[in-house]
Design a protein around this nucleic acid. Sequence first.
DNA 1: CAGAATCCTTCTCGATACTG
DNA 2: CAGTATCGAGAAGGATTCTG
Lengths: 123, 123
Amino acid sequence: MVTTTSLAGNPYQQDCPTRRILDRIGDKWTVLIVGALGDEAVRFSELRRRVEGISQKMLTQTLRSLEDDGLVSRTVTAQVPVKVEYALTDVGQSLRAPLKALEDWSIEHLGQVLDARTAQQAA
Amino acid sequence: MVTTTSLAGNPYQQDCPTRRILDRIGDKWTVLIVGALGDEAVRFSELRRRVEGISQKMLTQTLRSLEDDGLVSRTVTAQVPVKVEYALTDVGQSLRAPLKALEDWSIEHLGQVLDARTAQQAA
DNA sequence: CAGAATCCTTCTCGATACTG
DNA sequence: CAGTATCGAGAAGGATTCTG
């Protein structure tokens, strides 16, 4: 029987683990929020200051998604005015390593990518 | 002068290297195509078979973007019918490592994320 | 302070039909 | 075989307004 030997099971599907995670972290704000949280708990307003250019809507929305996926915890302190702090969970923390790998690659190769891009536009 | 010490330069910007790369690889098909290419040259039609569910339009479009960014090379062999092969460039190859890191994390933690997600929907 | 709700624009992507 | 061109639906995200 002839099979594409190196492709047993055909791993290049839309619902493979990598793509499903990229669906979550590939949006406009997620990685920035994860970076802004780091290893400390941060208040909503402080988070909004740290993540440059984010709207209140998108900050809320992205934090909700991260919370739903168990990557971020939300702690409400009943005082006046109310205090809400967000922090990475253990799982959320563990995501920082692969993101760091991607960041390192980006820093090292973004220049080449941009050069290739502008060179292409010339043609 | 007062500065947010741990945030010198405010790294959490939309145009930071990581986000710019995620703008490229965070789309629906890029990582699947990179995976399907691996370390060999692959023809257009074969690529289309490997990447499950991709339309001809999106395959072409994503390959063009990857080519413009210098991550993929395109080789045309003039024969009848014409043969076009795509392969990862050196830069494209170097991207596989950080993507692998993300894949490993996804395989290890996707279950937890999905569990958290369904648990959240119950509430 | 930390949000919810609404409107509106832009971008992504899929489907379809045609070509050298 | 390997594309190009066009259309339209839906999602993502920004601006604005209002609230416990």
